[in-house]
């Protein structure tokens, strides 16, 4: 299947409630499968999309049900690009994952884990602020060469 035009561009809108990230996971996985991504990269994509959605619901929209998380997916020739946009005036900087030793031995809060996982799994991660004050996290996962 050769990706072309808007056929491979999908957009969904989710409420800011835990569990609804699964809609984005399933959609992005289906699109990546259509693009011939191997199973291991699809698993990476699923986890990265899950964490980006949860991050947008929690930190961006602060779990306000009426605030939406918009997920845009685009399948290209050699990559899938997923943008996750919140409507929040939430945090603009994410806490750095402190590492498990500090969490366990020094009782540090396990914050920043989701963003850490995204950066480990994605080939590229970009952040933008939207004109109405929300934030977009864009994740790019490429087909292995």
């Amino acid at each position: 299947m050769t990706p072309a035009s808007n056929e491979y561009s999908i957009e969904i809108s989710l409420p800011s409630k835990i569990g609804y990230e699964r809609i984005a996971i399933a959609s992005s996985a289906a699109l990546a499968k259509m693009g011939g991504f191997p199973a291991a990269r699809i698993e990476d994509l699923k986890s990265a999309v899950a964490e980006a959605c949860i991050n947008a619901m929690q930190h961006g929209n602060q779990w306000r049900l009426e605030a939406r998380v918009v997920v845009h997916m685009n399948l290209g020739d050699d990559r899938i690009v997923v943008s996750v946009t919140d409507q929040g005036s939430g945090v603009t900087e994410f806490p750095k994952y402190p590492g498990i030793t500090k969490i366990i031995e020094e009782n540090v809060s396990p914050r920043g884990l989701g963003v850490f996982i995204i950066h480990q799994l994605a080939d590229e991660v970009r952040y933008n602020q939207t004109v109405d004050g929300g934030h977009t996290m864009t994740i790019e996962i490429r087909l292995p060469e």
Partner: peptide, 19 residues
């Protein structure tokens, strides 16, 4: 099983107790 960062955080806190 689907496991996300929230679940991993719960597991890490459980590991803190086992330590």
């Amino acid at each position: 099983a689907y496991i996300n960062s929230g679940g991993i955080s719960v597991l890490i806190q459980l590991l803190a107790k086992t330590e």
